[in-house]
């Protein structure tokens, strides 16, 4: 793998930055290089937030995303700002709450709803999203991603997060069938 660029977006407080960190750490666990960066407004909550991850078997020079292979948007604002107008061939995942006009080929999935309804914890939507992302893009081995998730989440929430990750993979499996 030469260089994969992933852009995760949502609103501040949705755990987008943590999701990027986990993805980058999963890549490191496999001996790859990874850079995670973010951009956000002055507010800690709300506003459109973006977390970018670059995974490469070589060293990463330019640390930002210019040619993404996958873009995730959890809110309409994030979709408009960071995901709309991607070239063909870019996988675009959005939460099904995104209620703006979507480009052709965008994959709409019930990420937040799954976290809320199946796990009772909307806060783990970012982990559901990670499962979905890796399910579709196969960036890292599932075991690496699970290990990276468990390394970062608070003690006592391991089962919840493991379930969230698997539900994310399941969303992709179901959308393919």
């Amino acid at each position: 793998m030469k260089r994969s660029e992933i852009r995760l977006s949502g609103s501040g407080g949705q755990g987008i930055i943590l999701a990027g960190i986990i993805l980058a750490e999963a890549a490191l666990l496999e001996g790859k290089n990874a850079v995670q960066s973010q951009s956000y407004g002055p507010e800690a909550r709300g506003g459109a937030s973006k977390s970018e991850v670059i995974i490469s078997s070589e060293s990463v020079d330019y640390p930002k995303v210019t040619d993404p292979s996958l873009v995730l948007a959890l809110t309409s604002e994030a979709y408009t700002k960071y995901a709309r107008g991607c070239s063909a061939g870019v996988v675009v995942l959005v939460d099904d709450s995104v209620n703006t006009l979507l480009d052709e080929g965008v994959l709409s999935l019930p990420i937040i709803r799954t976290a809320r309804e199946e796990l009772g914890r909307p806060i783990v939507a970012n982990i559901v999203a990670l499962g979905a992302i890796n399910g579709v893009a196969k960036l890292v081995a599932p075991e690496s991603l699970e290990k990276a998730v468990l390394n970062r989440v608070p003690k006592g929430t391991e089962d919840l997060n493991r379930k969230a990750l698997h539900l994310g993979y399941k969303l992709i499996a179901e959308s393919n069938s």
């Binding site: 960190i21 290089n33 995670q36 960066s37 990463v60 640390p63 930002k64």
Partner: peptide, 9 residues
Amino acid sequence: EVVGHMRER
């Protein structure tokens, strides 16, 4: 800011 906030190995 880029170097301060980016995460890498």
